[in-house]
């Protein structure tokens, strides 16, 4: 508690100092006002919690208040139209996930992929093709064969979400038939997989590390370009000749027309903040590591690649315009 009050005091004095400074120096004293991070969900849940911790870590770097603004609805479109209504001055940052990209692809979205510019990535959790520990599918090859001969029941979150698009992209590339069973949360379809209600699922390491260790789940392949540090023996789909890379990512963007200098200040502050023990500890708690953190260049190109990959699958599924 005392610690908290102390850092609170420090924060206020820093903020006052920053304010005093801004009054005298004029033009480029960004940031001199509070910065908001717009999140597309209600409080609670992974994206919101991550954003809140990033906000705390970032404000320690910038010396100005950074807070989370929840604008729920429309698969991110309420958040996007809110961001669009704000000036492109760097004081409004948006948290984005693949959901935002797929909402853009559906059409009629307030923002388009060309309107945003990536700042930094906070979490990167590749989707892993997983079956039950005692499943007869010993390798990704077995699963693909079975899917070509019959139908694989595959669990994920809502239709049009990253799990669905990833499963369908994989099925199409491998020539399998997949019957997709949507659930409300990852924990629910992980439980369904371990009960044997479904044959396979795309799950994250953060949700399944204990089950993999205990042998309850068997990871068959990772939907990423490189093997995961935590699963060095599990092949990637690209090794198997399937160029499928999907991941539960959370990162931050601003409007593209935001001044470059301000983008750099934000990027640097976020990256530095995420180096802190507190953020690293949080990453560890959700089963990830420092490879999750990425700067503007790589993050921005990842957004665009995922957008393109989603586009093809969504057109096939009749979801995209």
């Amino acid at each position: 508690m005392r610690h908290w009050m102390k850092s609170g005091l420090l924060m206020t004095s820093l903020a006052t100092a920053a304010l005093a400074f801004s009054a005298t120096s004029g033009a480029d004293d960004f940031p001199s006002e509070p910065i908001e991070i717009v999140v597309h969900t209600s409080p609670g849940g992974g994206t919101d919690t991550t954003a809140r911790i990033v906000a705390l870590a970032t404000q320690a770097q910038l010396g100005t208040n950074v807070y989370v603004q929840n604008k729920k609805g429309g698969g991110g479109s309420v958040a996007m139209s809110y961001v669009k209504s704000k000036p492109a001055d760097g004081y409004t940052v948006m948290a984005i996930t693949p959901t935002h990209l797929f909402t853009m692809l559906r059409g009629n979205s307030p923002l388009d992929i060309d309107d945003i510019q990536g700042l930094a990535r906070a979490t990167d959790d590749p989707i892993i093709v997983m079956v039950r520990g005692d499943s007869r599918y010993k390798s990704i090859h077995d699963l693909i064969e079975a899917g070509r001969a019959g139908v694989i029941k595959w669990g994920g979150t809502q239709i049009g979400g990253v799990d669905h698009i990833a499963a369908m992209s994989f099925a199409k590339a491998a020539g399998m038939k997949v019957s997709f069973v949507p659930f409300d949360s990852g924990a629910e379809f992980a439980a369904a997989l371990s009960r044997g209600d479904i044959d396979a699922a795309g799950l994250n390491i953060s949700e399944t590390r204990d089950q993999i260790a205990a042998g309850d789940f068997r990871p068959l392949a990772v939907m990423a370009d490189d093997r995961m540090k935590a699963l060095p023996d599990v092949p990637t789909l690209s090794e198997k000749g399937l160029d499928i890379s999907f991941s539960t990512v959370r990162g931050y963007v601003v409007l593209k027309s935001t001044p470059k200098a301000r983008q750099e200040i934000l990027e640097k502050a976020m990256l530095k903040g995420m180096e802190s023990d507190r953020y690293q500890n949080y990453l560890k708690g959700i089963g990830l590591d420092e490879t999750s953190i990425e700067g503007a260049a790589d993050w921005d190109s990842q957004i665009r690649r995922m957008y393109k990959a989603g586009q093809e699958t969504m057109q096939d599924l009749g979801l995209a315009q």
């Binding site: 849940g45 919690t49 924990a187 992980a190 439980a191 204990d210 500890n281 949080y282 708690g285």
Partner: peptide, 26 residues
């Protein structure tokens, strides 16, 4: 199990994770 029993429990689960605590048999 690490499966939230309610909306609030889901947020508390997030609280465990912030502190690097993994729920479950462990």
């Amino acid at each position: 199990l690490g499966i939230p029993g309610s909306a609030t429990a889901a947020v508390i689960l997030g609280g465990l994770q912030i502190h690097g605590i993994r729920p479950g048999a462990y």
